[in-house]
Computed example of a mutant assay.
Amino acid sequence: MKRKKLAGAGLAICVMGAVITACGTGKQTEDGGASSVERSAAYTDGIAKEPGNDGGNSGTASGITEGTVAGQGMEQPQDTEHTASGNLGTESDFPSELQGDTYLNGPNTCPDVTFVSDGPVTAQGGRFLLSAAEDGDAWRYDEFETLKRYMHGEWHQVPIITGRCGNTSYYNVPADKPEAIDIEWQWLYGELPPGIYCLEKYVFPGEVLDADYEDMDEKTAAMEEARKHVCAPFVIHGEPDIQMEVWDVAPTGLKLQFTHMPGGTRDEAEYNFGSWYELEQYTEGEWKTQPVYAEVAWADLAYSIPAEGSEVLEIDWEWLYGSLEDGVYRIHKNMYSGKDASRDLPMYTAFWVEKCREGEK
């Protein structure tokens, strides 16, 4: 289905990094907490790219297109009941508290637009379908998406490792046939580790976009007030099928939690990890190991991850790395399987450090 670009609707947008701030919890608001000029771009300029063919991360996502996802089966969307996009289809893949999550199905979710994954989503990208309950120009969308991850009971925007500037256009959300959007996000976010994610898009009322305004500032303000979001949840599985969550991020440390992924195939092997960790920063187009301030003799400790529940560590690295400057970082831990303790299974989780500015609390 070829999209028809609406003339005269362009806006200049410059997208930079997402923030998990050191000045607070990094919790997202129900509408995503980002303005139209702060959203992360994961769209590949209309070029369909097949994800997962580059020999990268083998993690895949559970299919979220069956049964009750978004209240419809996407095989024949024109013949099915249309409901909000945030409904969870494969319930075993998601924690029970997400069934009533206000971010996925709250007052800022558009009830007239559906956004779901179409088949498997990989650690590098996937295909998503966007459709409206009624045809016409009631709702429109642009080329931008935001990737978020569910960690420690909150949705956090996934830190991006690059930026994109350019003009955006707006398109009608179709009803007769879903719009297929192929997204490769590896260049923007890197490969996704095992975890619970959602891809968010903003949709805008056509009447707001078509109205007359005195200037662009007035139009932008009207769009931000009237916009709604739609969310396509999915789960990335991998080896080990464990998610490593971070929260309470600060320039001098964070909290780290290990939990078995819901759903998927539970490996009978027990996974353990030691006290060792490493920080890397994304700079000059690659991940570089942070220099340390001291020689370290890591304690010979072994932590196991319980089958039910989680293992939590509180890490203070000021003695080892000092206070981190603003930027995108990731923490690296190695897992060990009870079946083969000699084999390292590396795990990474990215985060953003932004030091508190003067006057902030």
Rank of each mutant, 00 (worst) to 15 (best):
D118I: 06
V296L: 07
T162F: 07
T146Y: 05
I160F: 04
S342H: 13
E191S: 12
A211V: 01
R3H: 01
E308V: 05
C23K: 05
L320K: 12
D217F: 06
E145S: 15
A297L: 10
T80K: 04
K355R: 15
G126N: 02
E218Q: 12
T146R: 11
G327L: 06
E134V: 06
W276K: 07
G163Q: 10
D176G: 04
D241G: 07
G24A: 12
G24I: 01
A302H: 05
F115P: 08
R357M: 04
E184C: 13
S169E: 07
D118C: 04
I20P: 03
G125Y: 07
I64K: 11
Q157K: 06
G263K: 00
A42G: 09
A232D: 01
L147E: 04
P174V: 04
A211C: 04
Q257V: 03
V235Q: 15
A222G: 09
Y150E: 08
P95D: 02
V69W: 09
D118N: 14
P251F: 02
V312L: 14
W185Q: 08
P262A: 06
S310H: 14
R330F: 10
G100M: 01
G119N: 05
E143Y: 00
Y329N: 13
I20D: 09
A12V: 01
E278A: 05
A123K: 00
W155K: 13
Q281M: 03
Y271M: 00
D316A: 09
L130H: 00
E75P: 02
D45S: 14
C356I: 07
T265N: 03
A226S: 08
S304H: 02
I64A: 12
K355T: 10
Y336W: 11
R330S: 14
G359R: 06
G32N: 14
T102A: 15
A22I: 00
A34Y: 15
K177Q: 11
E75H: 08
M74K: 14
K2P: 00
V235P: 07
H332V: 09
G166N: 07
Y303C: 04
Y303G: 03
T162G: 13
P159H: 02
